[in-house]
């Protein structure tokens, strides 16, 4: 399964969720597939997407938060898995799209061919942690995660195939504004 198709599957399942996507191709692909005010495209600060999402989820327990991160991003801040496990937010879904490399910078290998991220997540206290490697199982488990109590973690193995998509063309301060407004508009 291509990562682009995995994001497409996730995007079609979204209803009222807030998405924080990591820097690099993942934000670009999400921007192309489904741009919405409820997306926060993290352009820099590699590794911090789950921390930003955790901040939103703790401050706004009635918002449902989805993190889209790569294996490089997730490996960079494994410690955040511990913070998620400890704070255990019910409204939090962490999706790792794992192509075993830093694709945005030229495909340099990461350690995720060895590191079992879903097991690290589980042992960090994220009990609902699954490994998926097909469109069908991704859809099944993502829909399940949307309707069940979190935190949830989905380790999604994807192929290392680059799809040509444009950069995120929204100014960072505009991304903040849109996201803040969408959160304000959320009914209590």
């Amino acid at each position: 399964m291509r990562r682009y198709d995995a994001i497409k599957v996730i995007a079609t399942c979204l209803t009222n969720e807030f998405v924080i996507s990591c820097n690099g191709m993942i934000s670009r692909e999400l921007f192309t597939i489904k741009d919405q005010e409820k997306n926060f495209y993290m352009l820099g600060s590699m590794g911090l997407a789950p921390a930003i999402g955790l901040g939103v989820s703790l401050a706004k327990p009635n918002a449902k938060i989805v993190i889209l991160a790569g294996d490089g991003n997730t490996l960079m801040s494994l410690g955040t898995l511990a913070t998620i496990g400890k704070t255990s937010p019910k409204n939090f879904i962490f999706v790792v799209l794992d192509n075993e490399c830093h694709e945005s910078t030229g495909g340099q290998q990461t350690s995720s061919s060895i590191t079992e991220l879903h097991i690290i997540a589980r042992s960090s206290g994220i009990k609902n942690s699954k490994y998926v490697n097909s469109v069908t199982t991704l859809k099944k488990h993502f829909v399940e995660a949307l309707s069940s109590e979190g935190p949830s973690f989905l380790h999604v193995k994807v192929d290392n195939v680059r799809v040509d998509v444009p950069r995120v063309s929204i100014e960072p301060t505009e991304i903040t504004k849109r996201f803040v407004n969408a959160l304000i508009a959320l009914p209590r």
């Binding site: 600060s45 911090l48 930003i52 999402g53 901040g55 939103v56 703790l58 918002a63 410690g79």
Partner: peptide
């Protein structure tokens, strides 16, 4: 990570 948390909390 704390700064990431703070950014999320501010937006919420």
């Amino acid at each position: 990570e704390a700064i990431g948390l703070a950014v999320g909390a501010y937006m919420a």
